[in-house]
Design a protein around this nucleic acid. Structure first.
Lengths: 183, 183
DNA sequence: CTTAATTGAGACTTATTTGTCTCATTGTAT
DNA sequence: ATACAATGAGACAAATAAGTCTCAATTAAG
């Protein structure tokens, strides 16, 4: 049966998450296709990794949209912001396992990075709205809060990978730690 | 002038932190020595990276010892534990900038990983003592707390690298976020 | 000053990976 | 059944980096 481009991307993400330095041959094998076919879909490794990057951004943006952060930011309504924050963080926990490998990639094209900055910027603005609404301490730089979210997702990823915490406990631990800290 | 093995290690750490995929030639250039000399000190890339790993563990353990976590853990004295926790976290913030590149290395030898586990275990035990003393919430798994520390150090690293927060604000942000969360 | 050790520069081989190409095979649509 | 498209397998060249070696130059020690 034919393996679609999207399926290749999915398989590549999964494999690169466990083996970030995998060769094209390994990735092809992981996707269940030949190396030649992989090269028919993606000119080279760069194009493949770039495609994975765009997929990651799509997922991230989808989570933002499904949570409705733009509308919540505009509304400035504390109750709505709280709901949206919950939804956003839950969504991000759900997808964080797939995109950790991007941390080690340093050859991503400028337009992808620009898009990434845009999406992050939207999140920073949302978090700033949460701060103005009193949901998040106002004495912290919004960008720091955003980076903390990102870092805690790294913690989630690591913990699950090592088996320290059960997958189902993760959202609760994550949210609790994020909001209330550890003391 | 002669460049010592320790100096090479230091230079290699600094360079690999900005360019994790650097070749031996690049590392040699960064250390100000020739490729041949680099190979006289380290049989191969593996041996070099392993040496960097040991250096990182040394630094980590030194921070633990200077903070005195073993004694504090044994004492079970809340006041002492609080002091020690502060010292530990400050020390770890100070060294976290140097060892981020290890995240992308996957060829570290078993004995190094074992040593890493030992040092981490000591930290987990210390954090557990902090929990028993009421400094840290007892409803969180100690290992999760340990991973959160690690993750927040990632956030510190990222924030400083991107220039989002000033270096001098970092310890305060880090400690505040860790202990009290963001709400 | 002389000698020994260390280093730098560069040539060289080897290994790995990438990217291209060909051709036989498989699967599918008409 | 036939023709067309996609795939798999493998050969091949090019690129990159690792690792080894030699030799001249530099440095340090006596």
């Amino acid at each position: 049966m034919a393996v679609s481009r999207e399926q290749i991307i999915t398989a590549a993400i999964q494999h690169l998450n466990t083996t970030p330095a995998a060769s094209m041959a390994e990735i092809a094998a992981a996707a269940g296709i030949s190396r030649a076919t992989l090269h028919r879909h993606f000119t080279g490794r760069d194009e493949l990794v770039t495609a994975l990057g765009w997929r990651a951004l799509e997922d991230w943006e989808r989570v933002q949209q499904e949570a409705g952060i733009a509308e919540a930011t505009a509304s400035a309504d504390p109750a709505r912001l709280r709901e949206t924050l919950q939804a956003l963080l839950h969504g991000e926990v759900a997808i964080c396992h797939e995109h950790g490998f991007l941390l080690t990639e340093h050859t991503l094209p400028a337009d992808l990075m620009r898009r990434s900055d845009e999406i992050e910027e939207r999140e920073v603005e949302f978090l700033a709205a949460c701060q103005r609404a009193g949901l998040i301490r106002a004495d912290l730089p919004s960008r720091w809060v955003s980076t903390v979210v990102f870092a805690l997702l790294v913690a989630v990823r690591e913990s699950v990978r090592r088996g320290d915490v059960a997958q189902r406990d993760v959202p609760h631990l994550f949210l609790g730690t994020f909001l209330k800290g550890i003391s």
